Computed example of a mutant assay.
Amino acid sequence: MKIIAMIPARFEASRFPGKLMKNLAGKSVILRTYEATKQSNLFDEVYVVTDSEIIFNEITSNGGKAIKSIKEHESGSDRIAEAVENLDVDIVVNVQGDEPFTQTESLKNLLEVFKTDTKQQVDIASLKIKITDLEEINNPNNVKVVCDEAGFAMYFSRSPIPFARDASKAVYYKHIGIYAFRKKALLKFTQLPVNQLEAAEKLENLRFLANDMTVKMVETNKLAIGIDTPEDLEKANAVFKNN
């Protein structure tokens, strides 16, 4: 089974423009992410997929592999699908370009789903983490997920789900947006139209569920450090400095 990592990377970012090229302990954020993903030793190949000449050159000039997008894309999944269409690969992992501290153990557990899925019942695997803080639970920027007894996602929402009619019984999980796709599932996803649920919540993972695609959720207890703001970059630099 051939497994590759794809790191979709846009230069522009609404909250922190150009963040992937910002300096993180002497290297750019995107290069740090690429190198950390390679060093996990979980993948046969690692690629950065980008529409930016700057990011493309940053990776290739440092000995890495990058693919330049041909078309404009609405989502990272669409960008990756274009890049893998003609590649000989079985599993594609979408690694976030603004998360330079790769969760090797969590990624390993994610890939284990496919290695043990002998009947190929899983289309996509993703991560979740238990949350208990009320502010986190109610924050619409934190996507929540509920699962069936076998650990398959039933619904994703920006709202707190489940509704806590009995607070003592309610358990909440935050969805972590790292996906591992079977190649055929990824290509199928990009051919499907945006449905009403996805349009309402602005969550592409609802397109999976609305079209009977199975999403196996894997629990982790480690939350990645993402870089969404200049303050996040300061914290990340502090982590490197202290290690």
Rank of each mutant, 00 (worst) to 15 (best):
K183T: 09
A210H: 14
F156Q: 02
I80W: 04
T132R: 10
D98K: 09
V194K: 15
A125L: 00
S77L: 05
N205K: 06
K202M: 05
T132P: 04
N109S: 08
Q121F: 06
A164R: 12
P160I: 04
A125K: 00
K119D: 15
I161N: 10
F114E: 03
E149C: 15
F101K: 12
I91N: 03
N138K: 08
E72M: 09
Q103R: 04
K130W: 05
I80F: 05
N86D: 12
Q120E: 05
A153H: 11
L110T: 00
R182V: 09
V122E: 04
P162K: 12
A180M: 01
F114Y: 01
S69Q: 13
N142H: 06
M154R: 14
F152P: 04
K144E: 03
I178K: 00
D166I: 11
E204D: 14
E135A: 12
S75L: 11
D148N: 15
K184A: 15
F163D: 13
V84K: 10
E99K: 06
I91K: 02
P140F: 08
V122A: 03
P140D: 06
Q196T: 13
N109V: 04
A210D: 15
Y173E: 02
A200I: 09
S159P: 07
F101N: 10
V95H: 05
D88Q: 10
A164D: 11
F101W: 13
F114K: 03
E74I: 15
L209V: 07
R158N: 13
A200R: 14
N109M: 09
E136C: 07
R207E: 10
L206M: 14
E204R: 13
L203N: 01
N138Y: 12
Q103M: 04
V146R: 08
I91L: 02
K184I: 13
R158I: 07
D166A: 11
A180T: 00
E82Q: 10
